[in-house]
């Protein structure tokens, strides 16, 4: 048998499948993780203000910044988390098409918020779960932002400085 092993995509995919079947760990290549992040961020950007709730009193962040941070967090986890969040966005879109005749991303922010609120108070667990899952990474990313934290009294830089002055040693 020839030693030649083609580097084509089907060959790589076959090797990956074979490794998976043997229960081997096949880490994601860097570019695949970046692709996932891009796909997720693109889905979340138009929904970010509505899913976060866009509080007027807090700093008005660029939705892309929030969506990028949220996607980065999700792709650090297992593939299931990525699929669950992406799936949730599609479920919300589906609900929007049924109730308004338009996709969620093409609605204005007040209408988006209405659809999301309806999903979150629904008796159907899938809809409740979708509104929770799609919103969670965005909310974490939003409230993690320095400007938003500061507005709520959690001033990271001041706390860091203060903690620096109170370093503890194990000496008795």
């Amino acid at each position: 048998m020839s030693e030649y092993q083609p580097k084509s995509y089907p060959w790589r995919a076959w090797r990956r499948l074979a490794a998976l079947a043997r229960g081997r760990s096949v880490p994601l290549r860097g570019n695949r993780r970046a692709l996932r992040k891009r796909v997720l961020a693109r889905s979340l950007v138009p929904l970010a203000p509505a899913l976060v709730g866009h509080p007027a009193q807090a700093f008005d962040l660029e939705p892309r910044v929030v969506a990028d941070a949220a996607s980065e967090m999700i792709v650090a986890g297992p593939a299931e988390a990525f699929l669950a969040v992406l799936g949730s966005v599609h479920v919300l879109n589906f609900l929007s098409v049924i109730t308004t005749g338009r996709r969620l991303r093409s609605l204005g922010e007040p209408d988006q918020a209405r659809v999301i609120s309806r999903a979150s108070t629904s008796r159907v667990m899938l809809l409740r779960g979708a509104s929770m899952l799609a919103g969670l990474p965005l909310k974490v990313a939003y409230y993690n932002h320095d400007d938003v934290c500061c507005g709520l009294g959690f001033t990271r830089s001041a706390l860091r400085e203060d903690a620096g002055r109170h370093q503890v040693t194990r000496d008795r």
């Binding site: 509505a50 899913l51 976060v52 709730g53 866009h54 509080p55 009193q57 807090a58 988006q112 918020a113 999301i116 609120s117 999903a119 979150s120 108070t121 509104s131 929770m132 919103g135 969670l136 909310k139 974490v140 990313a141 939003y142 409230y143 993690n144 938003v148 934290c149 709520l152 009294g153 959690f154």
Partner: peptide, 25 residues
């Protein structure tokens, strides 16, 4: 918990969520 972690324990959506989070302090 800091706000970015407390947000996970508030099940409200959209503006209601933001209203609850504005009460964080």
């Amino acid at each position: 918990l800091p706000p970015d972690m407390l947000t996970m324990t508030v099940p409200h959506a959209a503006r209601e969520h933001a209203e609850v989070m504005s009460q964080y302090p």
